Simulated assay, not measured.
Amino acid sequence: MSDVRWLSAEEQEIWRAYMTANVEFSAYVDRQLRRESGMPMAYYEILVRLSEADGRCLRMSELADASMSSRSRLSHAVAALEKNGWVVRRPADGDRRGWVCELTDTGFAALAEAAPGHVTAVREKLFDVLTPEQLLTLRDVGRAISAGLREECDAARAAGDDDADPPC
């Protein structure tokens, strides 16, 4: 494999620092939500996306894309959210194959109760430890990485790779 562009020592350090921070931060936020609100980060993200949607509902396919979840993983999560009374699923109007997920008042209340602790955790462990310049750089880096993956992710969706885990 002479054509492999191996990482330099500095690039390896950057890669490992990024991966460590990403994994640790995600785990911290998930633990905080589970401990204080009884829901994992994935459920919180679904509730947020529904709360921001018109009529607090989205087609399941749109919700999967918005919450960066595979359709099968989303289906399992929505089933658990339904058991809590936080969402309801119903057939989409005029489309026998499509389904819509709607945030209930109980779900909205659970989200509203979870939000202050979640925002505090994000503020303390992300925004308060970085300078304003670093935050702008972090935003730009995130956008650049996403843009670099967009073509591949669009192709995976077009090929019907809806259950890729983690999803594009």
Rank of each mutant, 00 (worst) to 15 (best):
L126H: 09
F127T: 08
R59A: 14
K83M: 10
P167L: 04
S72A: 14
D165S: 12
V23W: 07
Y28W: 08
E36S: 06
M19N: 08
P167Y: 13
T137S: 07
V23F: 11
L7Y: 02
R90H: 15
D154I: 05
G38C: 03
C153I: 15
M19C: 04
D65N: 09
V100R: 00
L138K: 07
G142E: 08
D95T: 02
R56N: 14
L50D: 06
V100A: 00
A79V: 10
P167H: 13
I145W: 09
A53H: 11
A110T: 04
V88T: 15
T137A: 13
D65A: 12
G117V: 03
S70A: 07
A42K: 11
D163N: 06
P167Q: 08
R35I: 05
E124D: 15
E45V: 11
G117P: 02
A110Y: 05
A159F: 01
A147Y: 08
R35D: 14
C168W: 06
R97K: 07
V48L: 06
D105H: 03
R31Y: 12
R31V: 10
L149R: 13
L111E: 04
A121Q: 04
A156F: 06
V129T: 12
P91C: 10
Q12F: 06
V119S: 07
T137I: 13
A147T: 06
E13W: 05
V100G: 01
E62R: 14
R73C: 15
Q134W: 08
S2N: 09
H76Y: 14
E151C: 00
A66I: 07
D93E: 13
F127P: 00
A144S: 13
R143E: 15
N22G: 12
A158R: 07
R73D: 15
I14A: 03
E10F: 05
Q134F: 11
V129M: 02
D3L: 06
E11A: 09
V4C: 00
A53L: 07
M1C: 07
R89S: 13
V23A: 11
N84A: 14
R143Y: 14
A115I: 12
M60E: 13
V48G: 00
T120W: 09
L47R: 01
Y28V: 08
E151Q: 04
N22I: 08
S26C: 05
A9C: 00
R59L: 11
L103H: 01
R139F: 07
R56G: 05
S146W: 13
G94L: 03
S61I: 12
A155N: 09
T20M: 01
I14W: 03
G117T: 09
Q32I: 14
S72E: 15
V119G: 02
G142P: 03
D54R: 15
W86V: 09
R139T: 14
I46H: 03
I14G: 00
A9N: 05
S8D: 08
V122C: 06
D154N: 04
W15E: 09
L111P: 04
D161A: 13
A112H: 09
M19D: 06
R96I: 09
A159S: 10
D93L: 05
T104L: 03
D128Y: 00
M19I: 10
R31D: 14
V78T: 07
Y43E: 13
C57E: 15
F25H: 13
E152W: 02
S72I: 14
L135Q: 11
T104Q: 03
V87Y: 01
M60F: 04
D54T: 14
R35Q: 11
V88M: 10
Y18T: 12
R89F: 01
